[in-house]
Design a protein around this nucleic acid. Sequence first.
DNA 1: ATCGCGCAAGATGACCATTA
DNA 2: TAATGGTCATCTTGCGCGAT
Length: 439
Amino acid sequence: MATRKKSETGAELEVLEASNREFRKANSAVGVRVKSGPTLSMMGRRIFNVLLYHAQKQGNTGNSAPSPWDACPNPEDYFWIPSGDLAHDSSWGSKDHKMLIAGLQQLQTTLVESDDPTGRFTSVQLIGAVHVLKGSGRRPTLIGWEFPRSTRDILSNPDFYTKLSIYHLTSLKTVAGTALYEIAKRYLTNVGGKTARQHWHWWHDTLTGKPVGSVKFPEFRYFKRDTLNPAIEEVNRTDIRVELLETKKGRSVTDLQFLVSFSQQVALELPPAPVVDSELLDRVKALGFTERQSIDLLSQHEDAYLRSTLELVEARMADLSKPALASPAAFMRTALKDNYLSAKQRVKTDPPVPKPKKTASSIKSAAEIAEDKERSARLDAAMASFNAMTAEEQNELLAQFHALFPMAKRYRRDGTPFRSTFGQWYSRRDVADAQTSLV
DNA sequence: ATCGCGCAAGATGACCATTA
DNA sequence: TAATGGTCATCTTGCGCGAT
């Protein structure tokens, strides 16, 4: 992926483009600690980073500003972007605008304080007023926001900026991982490649994003296990590597510091785009999950693993030889948790295969490839047969299908979920019919 | 159902006293 | 003075519980 080739697909180009979209962020805003307001969530950080990126790209306020209205008499003082851009760039991908609005409101009520080694201290509000102008017809919904004066001053000084990439920030899932990444990136070019040495209490506040003084510190061992180590693991999957340096007094850890370096692997191969896939989201939702539960599932599991498990569940739903699932959602959750995939593979192959590795899920045995091919051909044949029918015949068949799988009514006829579920049902139905006629 | 938190068992290492 | 061994604080990590 290091070089561009003509054969690259659109998706790959998009990933490349995203990885090149770096934006400048004020150094003094990098190691943020929330002073008041709610905990700065992952979504809040992402949205803030996207707002910064667009503000810097636009340079001045008032670009594509709508006409004024009662509550917004001065739209030219705001930065404006279509809400779709915000959703896309923050890798949200969801159409749930309420969540975006909630994220923006979180930023409004969040005060962050920062300090630097020379002892300069700042406390700023992340963003000021926010307006949403609902779109109609071809006009997209617009989001407008203003940065407080102090934040804007910082934005106008290029000396403060450190380069961060939207791509890597959005591939980080936890608050601590993002915070650590931001800090590490800032110190990457420092002599020695080390972050500042601070007491672990300082790191706790910085990495958790919890309001200072709002929580009593956990014991260091729990902080390390639950926050520090997961954050380090996450950062080490990006383009940089961090190594924890502990300073001890006796056996107890007092200060922490990180050794930061470029990761060599990632220059060759970037991880897959973290964008929430709306088609996949719809398929998961069709099992009976809420939007939020579906998004959580997508963010918690490796894409390939989730897809394969989903296929397994869909196939199980379409399998008429077994009793219908009382709750496909519950079945899916258990299938993910207990790794039904590997259980299935163990049954099929002897000797038992090791647990599928997260990154190597694409490696399949020859038997599996053959089975996939066979399944795909069966689905194709089923769909071809269905498509060849008259509209009346199709409707009759769909009615039977929907009676058995009511949730499949949501599937688009040209979508993968419909193909895999309906195709499976229809092809099995043929087999069942044939068997019945033989008897 | 999920998350945060704390317990507990075994491992490890710092410190100190003793001994050759 | 260096090696050895004992003690105890601390670390690591899996697991379970209770709050949300």
